[in-house]
Design a protein around this nucleic acid. Structure first.
Lengths: 203, 203
DNA sequence: GTTTTGCTAGTACACTCGTGCTAATACCTG
DNA sequence: CAGGTATTAGCACGAGTGTACTAGCAAAAC
């Protein structure tokens, strides 16, 4: 038969172009014409791969998760070092990660008021939850989570700290901010290895 | 002279309508026609108060800060109870606060790729920073922040936890989530009153 | 070669957007 | 009452949007 195209590679390029557009122009730039121009293909070609812009937005969510997952799977570390690097894959520390985070946030906020996109956003959020639970479990296995700590709670708090630090880091976007993000997170993790202070009043 | 109008009350109604639209329809709904329809006024009237949509978006930022500040100033509490309620004003615990947070997030994400709106977003972010520093200071004054804690770091971490918890709470939006948000935050604050575990390795 | 298919360029429709403008109406002040 | 202003409805422009369609080109399969 005729002319087989590598659909996967093309979709990847479209997704990469989408992320670039999202970071540069925001959600309003994620239009059929805008993405096609950024990817250097015709709008008709883009619409062949993604007949509707909803499909494109959904695919961006999947692609973000895939990219982060792939980077994490490639880590050859254990214990606390693995946790540090795992969480660092979700911080805007370089162009690639910043681009992903901006795109994620743009689409996620859009999903707040678009019920058809909510499932995709929730899927990605659930993946982040799993990542945080995994991080806490790794710490526990490595003896870096004190037995007085509640793993479920710490996973939730870690998720909050991670999201908060990442969002905050989006605003200045300077290398100075990078070390501050990493420090904040590292200092938080340091505490988890120590016994949880007794809840009895200190007064 | 003729027909004096209460510009302040009108602007407040426009801002309230803007927040309603932002929560229901998202950023794309914050159009001249959309807001005017929601506020029940003519588009020409809206454009008299805010000649450009940029002015409207900027005013939304100011109004959000004003509303939160007013609620916090009305709190008649001290110590830890004050801190709890202060932080609770920034969580999506009811319709009013959820509406503010959604609007804040929508505009904030837009400001990521709109340099003209960045100053307004950064102003609001700075106000949140001050709030967190104030919260930590109140705890310290009340003897609920152990002397081994670093107030600057704890203010930064509190900001992250607060933002993270609030964002996470936006997704389910159920009362069950409300208590979880409050619990996570309270448990974090509980720890701050206790001595910081020594940073020496526990292994 | 021919055929079959993917890709492209280009056009078109109906819609919404921000932004201006005009003319008329409602309403308060003096 | 009259005078003057805020507000209104409505139109218009250029631009951008999602979506849809056609005709033609390029390349791989037979």
């Amino acid at each position: 038969m005729p002319r087989r195209i590598d659909a996967e590679a093309r979709n990847a390029e479209i997704a990469a172009a989408s992320l670039r557009v999202l970071e540069r122009d925001g959600l309003s730039g994620l239009s059929v014409r805008g993405v096609a121009a950024e990817a250097g293909i015709a709008t008709a070609s883009l619409r062949r791969a993604f007949p509707t812009q909803h499909a494109l937005r959904e695919y961006c969510f999947e692609r973000i998760e895939e990219r982060v997952t792939a980077r994490i799977a490639a880590l050859d570390l254990t214990g606390r070092a693995l946790v540090d690097e795992l969480l660092a894959q979700l911080l805007p520390l370089d162009q690639e990660r910043r681009s992903e985070l901006v795109a994620h946030v743009q689409l996620g906020v859009f999903a707040l008021t678009d019920s058809t996109l909510r499932p995709a956003a929730i899927r990605l959020s659930a993946a982040l939850d799993r990542g945080c639970r995994t991080a806490i479990a790794i710490l526990a296995d490595a003896g870096q989570l004190d037995s007085s700590r509640d793993p479920t709670y710490e996973a939730q708090r870690l998720r909050a700290v991670l999201d908060g630090v990442a969002m905050y880091g989006l605003w200045s976007g300077e290398p100075l901010e990078s070390s501050r993000m990493l420090d904040t997170l590292a200092r938080h993790l340091d505490e988890l290895g120590q016994p949880r202070p007794s809840v009895a009043s200190s007064q």
